[in-house]
Amino acid sequence: MPSAQKRDYYEVLGVNRGCGEVDLKKAYRSLAIQFHPDRNPGNKDAEERFKELNEAYQVLSDPERRAQYDRFGHAAFQGPQGGPGGFGGFDFSQGFEEVFSDIFGDFFGTGRGRSRSRTRRGDDLRYDLEIEFEEAARGIEKVVKFQRLTQCESCNGTRARGGSSGARQCPNCRGSGQVRTQQGFFSISTTCGQCRGEGMIISDPCPKCQGQGRIRKAESLAVKIPPGVDNGSRLKLRGEGEAGYGGGPQGDLYVVIHVKEHEMFVRQDNDVIIEAPISFPQAAVGTEIEVPTLEGKVKLKIPPGTQSGKILRLKGKGIVDLHGYGRGDQLIKVIVETPRSLTARQRELLEEFAKLDGKAVNHPLSKGFVDKLKEMFG
């Protein structure tokens, strides 16, 4: 589903943006019971509503993903091709049953008593890079500076002091990551609050990262911008996102290109368009002018009788196709300028020219206009 069609996650769960974990879980539990497919067999609307609730809860129940959503909205989880697994670093189609069972346990037969994985892939990051028009056309290498979570060098991501294992089984859930409570006719399994679903507790946390296994660090990275990138192009740098949790794989970095407007060049697909002003005499008798291109100035012949708005083409002077399908052209739109003020001599010559220039063959557009007027009004 495209992000533009998605409802606000807080609206989906019926909670305000400042709600806490308890209220969030309570809202999700109530609505999920109402729309669960087992209670609505064959009801496609209820099934879609249940999936929507699950997706919203996956994001808002995770502090990091919730922070990303609060900042970027649905765009935080939009991949480079518009699919899942974007900047949020996870796929909404995964973990559907796991999230539900975390809230409801054995209710509806979903509880499996599984614990949260001790490793998790690092989040993807987004960097917005502004470049010049010529840089986008020719390609360039840029150094980007940003901050990301990296593996703690002191504990090597183990979260324990000195890199030792330092982990013991959680006494509250006995390593399952789940605690069960009986409520009436059904059993509810929830995430263990002591170990946060990991099943293990770090007895001696690393002092440098406070037992998180990751620290935030400033980074500088050289990024090669290929020729032909356009406004909105996304470059994916694998493994340059945030470090994984508990030794999990590193996320990716997406560099989003923003191309500045040029004072003369306008891009249309892979073609470059400019406007070239010429005088009436130049248009009438023809001339040769210099025009700018991405590779410097070139001479362009203006044929006699050129009309204002005429498009002339310079083959292969446009932008290289990003995917290797050749190169565009440069299009020159000729603008014939009319002088705003004339000397007495110029006026005399033009008046003489006007008397001599009465043949329709020289002004086919004017003749056609007059003929249409006669047809309309007699």
Rank of each mutant, 00 (worst) to 15 (best):
M1P: 12
M1I: 13
A4G: 08
A4L: 14
K6L: 13
K6H: 11
V12G: 01
L13Y: 00
G14L: 05
R17M: 06
K25V: 03
K26V: 06
K26C: 04
R29V: 11
S30M: 13
S30Y: 13
Q34D: 11
D38Q: 09
N40Y: 03
G42H: 05
L53Q: 02
V59N: 00
V59I: 10
P63H: 05
R65D: 08
R66M: 03
R66C: 03
Q68K: 13
D70P: 04
G79F: 01
G82F: 08
P84T: 14
G89C: 07
Q94I: 10
Q94D: 15
D106C: 13
G111P: 01
R116A: 06
R120D: 06
G122W: 00
G122M: 02
D123S: 14
D123A: 12
D124S: 03
Y127L: 01
E135M: 09
A136M: 04
A136K: 01
E141M: 14
K142Y: 06
V144I: 14
Q147D: 15
E153W: 09
S154T: 15
G162Y: 05
G166S: 03
Q169D: 04
R174C: 04
S176H: 03
Q178H: 14
R180P: 04
T181D: 14
Q182T: 09
Q182R: 13
S187H: 10
T190G: 10
T191V: 13
C192F: 00
R196F: 07
G197K: 00
G197F: 00
M200Y: 01
I202Y: 00
D204E: 14
P207V: 07
K208E: 15
Q210S: 15
Q212P: 05
I215E: 07
A218V: 09
P226L: 08
L235Q: 00
G244T: 02
Y245Q: 07
G248K: 01
V256D: 02
I257L: 06
E261N: 12
F265A: 05
R267T: 08
Q268M: 12
Q268L: 12
I274P: 01
E275G: 14
I278Y: 05
L294N: 02
E295A: 14
V298I: 12
G305A: 09
Q307D: 13
S308V: 05
K310G: 03
L314R: 06
I319A: 05
G328Q: 02
D329I: 04
L331H: 09
V334P: 01
R340N: 12
R347W: 10
A354N: 11
K355D: 15
D357Q: 11
G358A: 07
V361D: 09
K367F: 15
G368V: 10
F369S: 15
D371K: 07
